[in-house]
Design a protein around this nucleic acid. Sequence first.
DNA 1: CAGGATATCTAGCGCTGCTATGATGACCTT
DNA 2: AAGGTCATCATAGCAGCGCTAGATATCCTG
Lengths: 188, 188
Amino acid sequence: MSAISERRERERAHRHQLIITAARELAETEGWEAVTTRRLAERVEYSQPVLYSHFDGKDAIVSAVALDGFGELAAHLRRARQSAPGAALRAVCRAYLEFATERPALYQAMFILPTNLKFASAETPPPLRAGFDEFVSCFPPDNARRELFAEVVWSALHGMAVLSDSGRIPPDKQEERLDLLVTRIAGT
Amino acid sequence: MSAISERRERERAHRHQLIITAARELAETEGWEAVTTRRLAERVEYSQPVLYSHFDGKDAIVSAVALDGFGELAAHLRRARQSAPGAALRAVCRAYLEFATERPALYQAMFILPTNLKFASAETPPPLRAGFDEFVSCFPPDNARRELFAEVVWSALHGMAVLSDSGRIPPDKQEERLDLLVTRIAGT
DNA sequence: CAGGATATCTAGCGCTGCTATGATGACCTT
DNA sequence: AAGGTCATCATAGCAGCGCTAGATATCCTG
């Protein structure tokens, strides 16, 4: 109520974001296996239990980072689609792979590490849906199966991203695969 | 040398496989997070350090399970391909998704958990290459890009498998996605 | 049967995620 | 202005993790 408690609320929100940012930076520089509650607490200059007053556990922190990631991914895809009106699908696909390779830690949090995020349900976070919709928008509105097309494209890109990242398929042929995928899917 | 040391060698090999089997069963019934070196040791009725006389560490045990999995996957795909000469690609793709959903723990060891397996190199284990070749064999030999086709199909299937398993895309539409993928890729 | 190699276990290290307990200090009331 | 209340936060600790050094028991060899 009072201005004082409002200030505290603000500080608390600020610290909340600080934890998320610290987790992300630590993951991006040293990998997620280096993100321990102790190191994270030290980094934000609070004790360990403070983390648990903001999040239900470590998974929840990872989820928060992932959620930020989904927001950035959606924005990244949107920019790509709008900057290439004639070849939206190809641009969005390339942007997706770009995102995965350039922010590997973030991508891992979003798609590989265990998180608490709910998908394909009513509680699906908006940024997540927004990212998916960028794929859907690449197909003409009169295509009754455009959602299905989007799911397949997304799946293929995700597979290419992780299989290439782990060396299960040669990383240097990514562009050729991208071309094959787009040509086959978008082709008449 | 002696018959005695031969027997010991045999016993050792047997116990080696026992560890792998125990790890796999434990993972399949309770998930990989339940597979700890302590529980595994208890299960094979030996002490913890024995595990380390057979494997370099926990990751190596997971890798051994994964390698078994690649052998089974290759056999599974091969059967599917041979039993449907007219629609090999569709049969192999369906078999792949089947494998992923029916043996989730095994699939996780093969594609998601950290392992020591080398891919796309000279040391690629034969079963792994064999599985990939089943996809390649679905395309005509005169297609100079059949390896590329196989990589894209495999990527798409992997994406579909993991995204659907984690609920990021609706699991009940898997068959429709499969159809779309096969039609688009195999189509003229 | 004695000696030595080999196989195996006990015990423990440093780490993990997580939490019960208690001190600290800012706030509101009288 | 003093006293009591309550939220905030840190200290210290638990159970479990992967892994290993050192002690122990077992069995084969000469």
